[in-house]
């Protein structure tokens, strides 16, 4: 390292980064919607942000600055990806980035209602969401053990996502009522 950071800078970085890491990951994931890819870029960004922190202009938003660096890394990643047929083109990434930044800066996080919506699902539906998301098994295995067709499970899961999204929106609307 050409420049040593001070203890105070480290504290400041930790505070800012900790506060924004989730939003930053959401930003990266929206432009690179594959978990392994997004986590890879997120890791690189965390290293770069710390390394470049001495250049950060305190008058600016840390989140915007982080997203600028993340976007650069995402473009690098996309240029070299061997999965180009499954990633978005550069123009769309720019559009999605602009939209995402606007949304993340300005809108409420309605997903805080999701846990409650999830609890209200019937047991079998909750179980399917759990299987699909908890990382301990796969829908394919569940399909074998439960005797249900894999495509049927995927279709049901899609319907459940929409149902949960509706629930979240409904709760957000009700909350906003006087």
């Amino acid at each position: 390292m050409s420049q040593l950071h001070s203890d105070q800078q480290y504290e400041e970085f930790l505070a800012l980064f900790t506060g924004e890491r989730e939003r930053l990951f959401r930003y990266i994931f929206s432009l690179l919607p594959n978990h392994a890819d997004a986590e890879d870029v997120f890791q690189r960004c965390s290293l770069i942000l710390w390394r470049k922190f001495s250049e950060f202009d305190r008058e600016r938003s840390f989140f915007s600055w982080s997203c600028g660096i993340a976007l650069h890394e995402i473009r690098n990643f996309l240029r070299s990806s061997h999965r180009q047929k499954l990633t978005f083109d550069s123009e769309l990434v720019t559009q999605l980035s602009d939209q995402r930044l606007t949304d993340l800066e300005s809108t409420e996080d309605n997903m805080r209602y999701l846990a409650n919506c999830l609890e209200r699902l019937p047991h079998a539906d909750r179980e399917l969401v759990q299987v699909a998301y908890d990382g301990t098994t796969t829908l394919k295995k569940f399909s074998r053990t439960s005797g249900q067709a894999l495509q049927t499970l995927y279709n049901r899961l899609g319907r459940l996502r929409r149902q949960l999204l509706d629930c979240v929106r409904k709760k957000a609307t009700l909350e906003g009522l006087p």
Binding site: Q99, R100, D109, M111, L114, V129, R161, L164, L165, V168
Partner: peptide, 10 residues
């Protein structure tokens, strides 16, 4: 974006 947020939160 909302759909992806839902996915990440799940």
């Amino acid at each position: 974006h909302t759909y992806l947020d839902l996915h990440l939160e799940l």
